[in-house]
Design a protein around this nucleic acid. Structure first.
Lengths: 151, 151
DNA sequence: GCGCTAAACCTGAATCATTCAAGACAATGA
DNA sequence: TCATTGTCTTGAATGATTCAGGTTTAGCGC
C-alpha cells in the first residue's frame, strides 16, 4: 500500500534531487522500487520491457546519479554484481543467500549509523557499520534438504 | 613472536592441507602472511620479487586452494579487488578506509560466528555475520584535515 | 634412481561488470 | 524560441577474474 502515490511523485523527486525528468529515469527509479535488490542487468530488462531500447550506460549513469543524490542505495555483496534498493535513510542490513544470491532486508536493531562500534577503531573515523548476514534462504534450504539424505 | 616457527612449518601446513609443496606456493603463503590484506596483484609482485616469474594464474589457483582449505581467508570489500589475510579461524571483522582502501582487523566482541543475529532471519539459515566498518584511516584523516580549512 | 599420476604451472584467450569517450538529442529555464 | 547542459547513444576500453589446453614436476610406489 506504499505506492509512489500522488501524481508526478517520482517526477517531483527527481526534480528536487536536481535531476531531469525523463521516461528512462522514471522507469529506472520505478524498477528499483518495484524490484527486490535488482542488479543493473535486471533493472535494464525491466526498463526495456516498458520503453523499448534503453542503453546500459543510461541505466548505469542514472543509478549512479540516484545513488549520489540518495534516491536509491547501492549494495555490493561479495561475489555478486552491484544491486540497488529503494530503502534509504534508515540503516538496515542484509541477509544474503550463499546459494542463489538472493538479498533480503533486515532491520537494524540500533537504528542509526554506525549502529555498531568496533572493539578498537585503530584511529579510524568510523561512520558506518555494514552488516551482511550470510546463509541459505528458505528456498535453497528446502532444495538442499530434498536433495540430501532425508533422515 | 608468532613466527612460522619450526623448520618446514609452512611446508608441513601445505602438506597437511593436502597440497603439494612448491617454491611458488611457499612464497605465496608467506606473502599473504607477511603482508597486510594484500590483493592478488600485490601477492604476485611479492612472489615475483623472490622467485622471478610466476604467472597470475598460479597465484589465483594457489590462493583459491588456500582459501578452500582454510589456510587463508579471503575478503572482498565493496569497490576493491579481493584481498587475502592469514588470520583464520577466529571471527574478526574489518575497518576499511573509504579513501585509500586500507583494511585493518578488528576483533570480534562476540568471538564466534555468527557473532550477531539478525533481528528477523526471514527464514534464512544464517551461519555468518560479516561486519565491515567504513570510515577514514588515520593517514587519510590527517591528509584531509591539512587540506581543508584549518579553523 | 625410475616412472607414473595428478597436482601445479604455463601461455593465451575469454568473460563479466563497469567505465570512458565523443557526439547527438532533449528537458529545463530565460 | 533559443541556449544551456544534462541525458542518452554507440562503440571501445579497462580491470579483475576465469576458462582452456598443453607442459612440467612433486609425491609416491617400485
Amino acid at each position: 500500500m506504499k505506492d509512489t502515490g500522488h501524481p508526478h511523485g517520482a517526477a517531483a523527486e527527481l526534480r528536487s534531487a536536481g535531476l531531469r525528468v525523463t521516461a528512462a529515469r522514471l522507469a529506472i527509479l520505478d524498477a528499483v522500487r518495484a524490484g527486490d535488490h535488482l542488479d543493473v542487468d535486471a533493472v535494464t530488462s525491466q526498463v526495456r520491457e516498458r520503453l523499448g531500447h534503453v542503453s546500459f550506460q543510461a541505466v548505469y549513469e542514472a543509478l549512479h546519479a540516484f545513488t549520489a543524490t540518495g534516491l536509491v542505495r547501492r549494495i555490493e555483496p561479495a561475489g555478486s554484481p552491484t544491486r540497488f534498493e529503494c530503502r534509504v535513510g534508515d540503516n538496515h542490513h542484509h541477509l544474503v543467500c550463499r546459494q542463489c544470491g538472493r538479498v533480503t532486508d533486515v532491520d537494524c536493531t540500533a537504528g542509526e549509523a554506525p549502529c555498531l562500534e568496533p572493539a578498537d577503531d585503530a584511529g579510524f573515523l568510523v561512520d558506518e557499520a555494514d552488516v551482511t548476514f550470510w546463509g541459505f534462504c528458505p528456498d535453497c534450504r528446502r532444495d538442499s534438504e530434498e536433495g540430501s539424505t532425508h533422515d
